[in-house]
Measured scan of single mutants.
Amino acid sequence: DKPLMPYMRYSRKVWDQVKASNPDLKLWEIGKIIGGMWRDLTDEEKQEYLNEYEAEKIEYNESMKAY
């Protein structure tokens, strides 16, 4: 599988927590909350997800070359 983009990594990490805090919200409403949370992160906080993505992207590209 292709590596997940940084925002999607963050979304997967916080989804269950946001859903548990807001059990009556629809999926798109939860997505909207998470989008706002992502925008509110500092560049340093986002960098963690970007670093994970870049590392996985290198691994993915290497595995595709071998294939």
Rank of each mutant, 00 (worst) to 15 (best):
Y10M: 03
E45W: 00
N61S: 12
D1L: 04
G31P: 12
A20K: 13
I33A: 03
P3G: 07
N61F: 05
M8I: 09
L41H: 02
K26S: 13
Y10G: 01
W28S: 14
M37E: 02
R12D: 08
G35R: 14
S11N: 05
L41Y: 00
K2R: 06
E48H: 04
N51A: 12
Y53N: 10
D43F: 08
S21M: 13
K13V: 04
K19S: 11
V14Q: 05
E44F: 04
Q47N: 08
E45Q: 08
V14W: 02
M37T: 02
I30L: 07
R9K: 13
L41A: 05
K57H: 06
I30G: 01
K32D: 09
L41E: 01
Y7N: 02
P3Q: 06
E56A: 06
D16C: 03
W38I: 01
T42I: 03
K2G: 02
K13N: 07
D24V: 15
G36H: 11
I30N: 00
R12K: 14
K2I: 02
L25P: 00
L50I: 14
W15T: 04
N61T: 09
E59G: 11
Y67V: 08
K46R: 14
D43H: 07
L27H: 15
D16I: 02
S11R: 14
I30V: 08
P3R: 03
W15P: 01
E29K: 02
E44W: 01
Y53E: 13
P3N: 09
Y53K: 13
K2T: 09
Y49T: 03
E62Y: 03
E48N: 10
N51F: 08
L25I: 03
Y7E: 15
Y60F: 09
Q47R: 09
I58G: 11
Y60D: 09
Y60E: 13
G35A: 13
D24A: 13
Y7I: 07
M8L: 11
G31E: 15
S63P: 10
K2E: 03
I58W: 06
M37N: 02
P3C: 04
S11W: 13
Y67I: 15
Y10H: 00
M5V: 13
L50R: 13
A20F: 03
Y49G: 03
G35I: 07
Y10A: 01
I33W: 00
W28G: 14
E59Q: 14
K46E: 02
L25K: 13
W28V: 08
Y53A: 09
P23W: 01
M64P: 12
K65V: 07
R12V: 05
K26R: 07
E54D: 10
R12Q: 15
D40I: 09
K19L: 07
W38D: 05
P3D: 11
E48F: 05
A66L: 08
Y10Q: 02
I33M: 07
D16R: 04
E29V: 00
D16W: 06
I34Y: 00
K13F: 10
S63V: 07
E54R: 07
S63N: 13
E59N: 12
K65Q: 10
D43C: 10
E48D: 09
V18P: 01
E29W: 00
V14A: 01
E54L: 06
K65R: 11
Y67C: 14
K19D: 00
Y67T: 06
I34M: 02
M37H: 01
L41V: 02
R39K: 11
W15H: 07
D16S: 10
W15L: 09
D40L: 05
A66M: 12
E62A: 10
M8Y: 09
E29H: 01
D24E: 12
M8E: 15
Y10K: 01
Y53C: 10
I58F: 02
Q47F: 06
G35M: 10
I34A: 01
E45H: 04
R12H: 07
W15F: 12
A66E: 12
M8S: 11
L41K: 03
S21T: 12
K19Q: 10
